[in-house]
């Protein structure tokens, strides 16, 4: 057992107060000692916009619908992610790839409509695990604030990663560190 974060586990001491305790002053001074010691401790906060903390390796952020290196969408609208989602946040509609759209979709079938309700999503990452095509993964960004509930239903346009060739910079940024794992595959 390491250091406990809270006193919750500690048994409550119900023995009568000693004289020193009953005049409180000593305990107050002890308490003040504790607080003053924090004055000299390292600050837990950082200057946020300027300084940022790195995310952990396993951080699960906003969803991204991936494209392959040529810019084609990976998703085949198989629906496994929707099935896997414990919060039932994902809905989709499938469509057949028409001739001439090969540069857009990697397989014959693709998601014509793909929505994730971010208010329901619990960022568990099961969708990512369920996906056979590595089409969906959780990035390192947050869902930004919005004015309406509707705004939190992310459409496909919101989710699909920028085009790796045409919008290379944005693609790189959106990809974050996660794509490396993808590449290994």
């Amino acid at each position: 057992m390491g250091k406990q974060l809270t006193n919750r586990g500690k048994e409550v001491d119900r023995s009568p107060m000693t004289f020193l305790e009953s005049i409180y002053l000593w305990n107050i001074i002890k308490g003040m000692g504790i607080t003053i010691s924090h004055l000299f401790k390292k600050k837990a906060t950082i200057n946020y916009p300027e300084q940022k903390r790195s995310f952990s390796k396993v951080f699960r952020g906003l969803h991204v619908l991936n494209r392959d290196a040529e810019g084609r969408e990976n998703c085949t609208a198989c629906g496994l992610c929707a099935v896997a989602c414990p919060a039932e946040a994902i809905t989709m509609e499938a469509a057949e790839r028409l001739p001439g759209e090969e540069h857009l979709y990697r397989e014959e079938k693709y998601a014509a409509k793909y929505e994730i309700n971010m208010l329901r999503c619990i960022f568990c990452g099961l969708c990512e695990e369920a996906c056979p095509k590595d089409a969906i993964y959780l990035s390192e960004t947050f869902a930004p604030a919005n004015y309406s509930r509707k705004g939190f239903i992310y459409k496909k346009e919101d989710l699909v990663i920028p085009h790796p060739i045409h919008e290379k910079e944005a693609y790189e940024k959106a990809r974050g560190g996660r794509v490396e794992i993808n590449k290994k595959d």
Binding site: T35, I36, H38, L39, K41, K42, K43, A44, T45, N47
Partner: peptide, 10 residues
Amino acid sequence: KVAAWLQDRR
């Protein structure tokens, strides 16, 4: 300031 410091803030 003091409040922040005592609470490990800035």
